[in-house]
Amino acid sequence: MLSIGGQDLFVLEFGDILHYFSPYTLTLFLLAVLFTGLAIISRPEEQIEIAFGGDAYYAKETTLPEMRFRRFMAIACGLASIGAMVSGDLFNYTLFTSMVGITNVGIVAAVKNRHVLNAAYAYGIVAMIATLPLFGSAALIVATTGTLSIPALAAGGQAVPLVGKALLVLGVVGEGMAPFYAAKAEMFRAPGAPYVIMCSLSSLLIFLRVVEIVTTI
């Protein structure tokens, strides 16, 4: 049905929600699985901080409860991006995307660093605002076309309004990509590489997916 990401390999059905695996979505799916696995099995690194202007340096330890919570959030984030990668339903995709936004904040929320938490706060606000265009686009598209299924929309027949697509991209950008530039750079000061990586991975993945979706529908 789609030609943009290659021929469909197979389709997984959950009632009205289809999950389709094309070479493109399969690639993204596998990468999400892979990095979720890495987040599960690897322990956080000890980040070395240098005291400026001298020879002193010290290693930051991540405490066990903090590590457990962040790993939990990283896994949730990984699962959300796995779902978002293969979902063939517009509303389902937006749900997974907003879950990615929330868990991204959660991954760094446990870090005791003022800069990191401030950045996470700014990010959280953007992620919250972004749910409006995100779900708004799904609502707009279902109202104008009468369906939410991406394969059905791709088959043509309905004109998806351009503003619906624009809002969808804006929503995804707000959930993952917009905070990339400034807020995420601050959030990356946090130790715990395997978990922090999930932040940027999930944002990139949902962004890569939305490009496919708006080009398809």
Partner: peptide, 11 residues
């Protein structure tokens, strides 16, 4: 739309 329900509650 069972999966939607699951995701909503997970959020």
């Amino acid at each position: 739309r069972g999966l939607d329900t699951v995701v909503e509650t997970s959020i």
